[in-house]
Design a protein around this nucleic acid. Structure first.
Ligand SMILES: Nc1ncnc2c1ncn2[C@H]1C[C@H](O)[C@@H](COP(=O)(O)OP(=O)(O)OP(=O)(O)O)O1
Ligand SMILES: [Mg+2]
Length: 466
DNA sequence: GGGGCTTGAAC
RNA sequence: CUUGUUCAAGCCCC
């Protein structure tokens, strides 16, 4: 039934001599509770750093870093510059890495707004450090990922938000109709270095790698002025950070599994499905204690709650109250899309309809592609009508004079009498774009022919493929 | 199977 | 000074 097969870049190149043949598909789906950890461990435990700086691995890392557009870090060096820089200084950098002497540079602090309001502090390493972290990531990922929980879906190759959402619905359908929805406060920023490193050290024996990772954690955040060493947090923007965050929260997964909970975790968003409110509240209390005491993490009280699944949103989705719940797009997400579409129209005010559709259509396609799991389809019909109305609106605005309006309406097949009546009705563009003459003159078919595939049509197509 | 470009989503 | 991981779709190429 696993329809979303692991394709694309799921198979991160593994640069180890023995590790190369592993199937990316089974890569993320390690057997639950494996005791023979040695078996899956990296073949070169004592010389992991050699694997990191190995030619194959570095080339793969560089390719990846370049594929992301990236920005210059604090040293102002672009990704392209790094290639030249590395070929010139690689011998020295490699030696520093192998000797455990390499010192990372501070990360560049950038504030970006987040959707829910508030700001997110990004910590962007230099292009060179992104390259090295990427190389580390490629070596560490196959060591840790196979041992992660089946219920962990975030930041993992071969795992997706879709899988998590489907599993969540499954839990609710199985009669666990209460959810403990937990989110951590400033998750990456509050990662405790010692707690994390202890967990990394459980599988990584190479001291140089451990020291390097710690130095990356300690690298200061450059905020205009100078930066000082960090005592907590892993930079939001470091290629290694997502993997590290999973290594840290793996203990949470193991604890939840030990207690026999049905749960889905995606990054710091953890949903535990239970049968009663009481048991939910109990779980919430004890897991909160576990997180603060054992992992030194804080639960975000505002974003966390024990409630009914249909009152909560998980990964952009929500669900209905039925005993067999149906997935729906979370209301806040619909609002966000409308806002984005409005913004798109505002920016392209002077553009032709065709041009507007050409930029809008790929965005809607991508959006629909993510929310194609929604089984409540009313929103899509509503959005389709809303979008077409806005498009008719910009058409109407193009026609400044009654004569132009009448001419265009006639050209679209309206009778002369009706066209002229509408052309001079004196109403505003928004009224007219919803009026019957515009709907008749510019029906759905018209927009289809211009390349606007309606959300509903896209959904039907996606479901026929499935 | 692999590579390129674009778009979207989750965090 | 919009970064990172992951997933996916569309188009193009071998
Ligand atoms: N755009 C992004 N780039 C890099 N890392 C991200 C991005 N979005 C989310 N993350 C990572 C870092 C976050 O700490 C982690 C969890 O996301 P999120 O819960 O939305 O924020 P947060 O935990 O940092 O703050 P909050 O207290 O509001 O929950 O996922
Ligand atoms: Mg959080």
């Amino acid at each position: 039934m696993t329809n979303g097969a692991a394709e694309g870049r799921a198979g991160t190149p593994v640069a180890t001599p023995e590790g190369r043949g592993r199937n990316p598909r089974e890569y993320g789906s390690g057997a639950s509770s494996v005791t023979a950890t040695k078996e899956y461990s990296h073949p070169e435990q004592q010389s992991l750093m050699e694997a990191v700086v190995g030619r194959e691995n570095m080339l793969a890392a560089y390719k990846r870093v370049r594929a992301n557009k990236g920005v210059p870090g604090v040293d102002g060096m672009s990704v392209n510059d790094v290639w030249g820089y590395c070929t010139l200084n690689w011998a020295r950098i490699k030696e520093e890495l192998l000797d455990g002497r390499y010192e990372p540079q501070p990360v560049l602090g950038v504030e970006i707004p987040k959707p829910g309001g508030g700001v997110r502090q990004l910590g962007i390493p230099t292009a060179l450090d992104r390259l090295i972290q990427q190389a580390l990531h490629q070596v560490l990922s196959p060591i840790f990922n196979p041992h992660f929980s089946e219920s962990s879906y975030g930041f993992r190759p071969g795992r997706s938000a879709h899988q998590a959402v489907l599993k969540a619905r499954e839990h609710a359908a199985a009669g666990k109709r209460w959810v403990v929805d937990m989110d951590l406060e400033k998750f990456f920023d509050r990662v405790n270095h010692d707690v994390l490193m202890a967990r990394v050290a459980r599988k990584v024996k190479d001291k140089r790698v451990l020291v390097l990772i710690r130095r990356y954690l300690q690298a200061g955040l450059m905020q205009g002025g100078i930066a000082s060493k960090r005592k907590e947090g892993t930079p939001q923007g470091g290629p290694l950070s997502p993997l590290l965050s999973n290594i840290l929260l793996d203990d949470l997964d193991k604890e939840l599994e030990r207690r026999g909970h049905a749960f889905c975790r995606y990054a710091d968003d953890c949903n535990i499905y239970v049968q009663t409110k009481r048991s939910g509240e109990r779980a919430m209390a004890s897991i909160t204690r576990f997180l603060t005491e054992r992992l030194k993490l804080r639960v975000n009280a505002d974003k966390s709650a024990v409630d009914r699944p249909w009152k909560r949103k998980f990964l952009g989705y929500s669900m209905t109250w039925h005993t067999q719940p149906r997935l729906k797009v979370a209301p806040s997400v619909v609002k966000r899309l409308k806002q984005a579409v409005r913004e798109e129209f505002r920016r392209g005010r002077g553009r032709s309809l065709k041009k507007t559709i050409d930029t809008l259509a790929p965005k809607l396609r991508g959006w629909m592609n993510y929310f194609k799991l929604a089984e409540v389809k009313g929103v899509f019909e509503e959005l389709d009508m809303w979008i077409r109305r806005r498009l008719r609106n910009i058409l109407w605005r193009h026609w400044k004079r009654p004569y132009a309006r009448a001419r265009n309406l006639i050209r679209r097949g309206l009778t002369e009498e009706r066209a002229w009546k509408s052309a001079i009705n004196g109403r505003g563009p928004w009224w007219n774009s919803g009026a019957s003459h515009m709907n008749q003159a510019f029906p759905k078919k018209y927009f289809d022919s211009l390349g606007l595939v309606s959300l509903q049509d896209q959904l039907r197509k996606a479901q026929s493929v499935r």
